[in-house]
């Protein structure tokens, strides 16, 4: 499925908070139809990179091209149009706490796709089913949901407008292994069916092995390497070695071998 069309092109990105430099001359390409896993130690700026690309924060310097357009020079109307082609799943879900799950998903459909409430509800029901939530969850409020249900509900909301690019910030963190595996599978199904491009920030080694086409490692304020997993795992870098050759890394690798990935 992976083509060479570049969906996201980041060049020379710099991000700085006070004297703390998070990114320095960071380059990254994301191609259409791929699932790119972004890994890195805590505090290496994975979430900051995600927020920069989706336009939630303005970088200190550098260029970000989304669908071939420079995000930083677009007018606000053009930018809003672009943002509708993007879905984001936030780390803590960020569901609107005063709306039910169904209303959370229907809201972007009503606002942006111009559907009636009834039509939006029909589509929202399908998304709820698709992400593996039980039907009765539709009428629950976010405060009544378990951690795993929040992840699924926010994935359903991120998918509401059938985006071309999906940004996921640690989607499997806090899920049980079975739920996490189902999530990985769902991601692949969606990617295959819609030719989705997925930008996936994760710590979950199993997700890297089973779902990701390429892996980008954030370290030393830039993308150290972005390539297929076996290439990345062989890269000569202390952090990468510790990451992939540590006990968890080895276990995930062996598990992936066993199921013939």
């Amino acid at each position: 499925m992976t083509s060479t069309e570049t969906i996201i092109r980041v060049r020379g990105l710099c991000n700085q908070f006070g004297s703390n430099i998070v990114h320095q001359n960071l380059d990254l390409d994301v191609y259409r139809g791929e699932i790119l896993g972004v890994v890195g130690g805590s505090g290496t700026g994975k979430s900051v990179l995600l927020r920069s690309i989706v336009g939630l924060m303005t970088p200190t310097a550098g260029e970000i091209h989304l669908f071939g357009k420079n995000l930083l020079t677009l007018s606000s109307a053009e930018r809003a149009a672009l943002e509708q082609r993007v879905g984001v799943l936030f780390q803590k879900g960020a569901l609107f706490s005063s709306l039910t799950v169904l209303e959370n998903i229907a809201l972007p459909l009503i606002e942006h796709a111009g559907l009636t409430r009834r039509q939006a509800d029909e589509i929202a029901c399908v998304k709820i089913a698709l992400t593996g939530l039980a039907a009765h969850a539709a009428d629950l409020y976010p405060s009544d949901l378990s951690g795993g249900m929040i992840k699924r509900a926010s994935l359903a909301r991120a998918l509401a407008l059938d985006p071309e690019v999906l940004f996921l910030d640690e989607p499997t963190a806090g899920l049980d292994p079975i739920g996490a595996a189902a999530f990985d599978q769902l991601l692949k199904t969606l990617r295959d069916a819609f030719n989705l491009t997925v930008f996936l920030v994760t710590h979950d080694l199993d997700t890297l092995y089973t779902a990701c086409d390429r892996v980008a490692v954030l370290s030393q304020k830039k993308v150290l390497v972005a390539d297929r997993l076996d290439v990345v795992a062989r890269t000569d870098d202390e952090w990468i070695r510790d990451y992939f050759q540590g006990p968890r890394g080895r276990a995930a690798s062996q598990a992936a071998d066993r199921i013939g990935m």
């Binding site: 039907a135 769902l186 199904t189 069916a193």
Partner: peptide
């Protein structure tokens, strides 16, 4: 892939009987 998606949607909805 599209068949897989349609089946996934259909299966998920088939399991969800009852409704609101």
């Amino acid at each position: 892939e599209r068949k897989a998606l349609l089946l996934a949607v259909a299966n998920a909805m088939a399991e969800q009987r009852g409704g609101a």
